[in-house]
């Protein structure tokens, strides 16, 4: 099982606008170990989605380069699969045929892809829904199917763009626990953009806190907590507080406004 080691060398992204150029991302240098779980948090406009799109090969840096396992990213590739907030399942395909999709287009024989897809469905606990269609399932189940579809092609890296953003709080917590379990089993490199600070502390080995104007990585917070993690431990709380502080969302005693 291969795991991607990702190296970003002064990756920059600029957009031409009517009023000149906007720097969406300024000189990001970063190294992500193979099998590492990294979360990107930050306010909107900090370039975290841009960064993810560049890693996925959907977008290209204006300057600098991205290497995954020593190969420069020059477009979307099967070994780096992205999960989206709105799942993106094929509504006309059954759950099983959705999970099979990646194997089907890479020419895996029917028998084998069926077996592999069923294994992945088992992993997300939905093998009994193989013959259902996506619209018959809840949002949380649909995202688990999308995860199974990604895992089916045995990628080296999974990118996630606010994967649980559309789900209610309880479903989200359940899915985070499931993702943590699957990650520990499969040890894929995962890079996950999130708005949910608790989610980042629960899941990540490292949290990259990003900032705006220009979009950049402001701080890297390692999360040395043992797994499985307890959301209610004081250490968890301490780290969560630190992320809040880095995002300038903590108002200790002094108000950040004047009357």
């Amino acid at each position: 099982m291969k795991q991607a080691r990702i190296v970003l060398r002064s990756v920059e992204k600029r957009f031409a606008t009517r009023s000149g150029t906007t720097v969406a991302l300024a000189a990001v240098d970063l190294e992500i170990r193979g099998g590492e779980f990294v979360c990107l948090v930050g306010p909107s406009g900090c370039g975290k989605s841009t960064l993810l799109n560049i890693l996925a090969g959907f977008d290209f840096p204006s300057r600098g380069s991205v290497e995954i396992d020593g190969a420069i990213v020059d477009g979307p590739q099967r070994r780096v699969v992205t999960l989206f907030q709105s799942y993106g399942l094929f509504p006309w395909r059954s759950v099983l045929r959705n999970v099979e999709y990646g194997l089907e287009v890479s020419g895996v024989p029917r028998r084998q892809r069926r077996d592999q897809a069923m294994q992945c469905l088992d992993l997300v606990g939905l093998s009994s829904f193989a013959e259902h269609h996506p619209h018959e399932l809840s949002g949380g189940m649909q995202q688990r199917i999308a995860l199974a579809r990604a895992l089916a092609v045995d990628p080296e890296c999974i990118l996630m763009d606010e994967p649980f953003g559309a789900l209610d709080a309880i479903t989200r917590i359940k899915l985070q626990e499931e993702l943590a379990r699957i990650w520990e089993e499969k040890r894929k490199t995962i890079i996950c953009v999130t708005h949910d600070i608790e989610e980042s502390v629960f899941l990540a080995d490292r949290i990259l806190v990003m900032a705006t104007n220009p979009g950049r990585v402001k701080t890297v917070i390692p999360v040395p907590l043992p797994r499985p993690r307890s959301r209610t431990s004081p250490e968890f709380d301490e780290l969560r507080r630190r992320v809040y502080a880095e995002l300038e969302l903590v108002h200790d005693s002094k108000p950040d406004f004047e009357i």
């Binding site: 477009g75 979307p76 590739q77 099967r78 699969v81 992205t82 989206f84 993106g88 999709y101 287009v105």
Partner: peptide, 12 residues
């Protein structure tokens, strides 16, 4: 989004 996903899986 569906086209993106299809490309991601390396579809011809």
């Amino acid at each position: 989004l569906l086209l993106r996903i299809a490309r991601n899986f390396g579809s011809s």
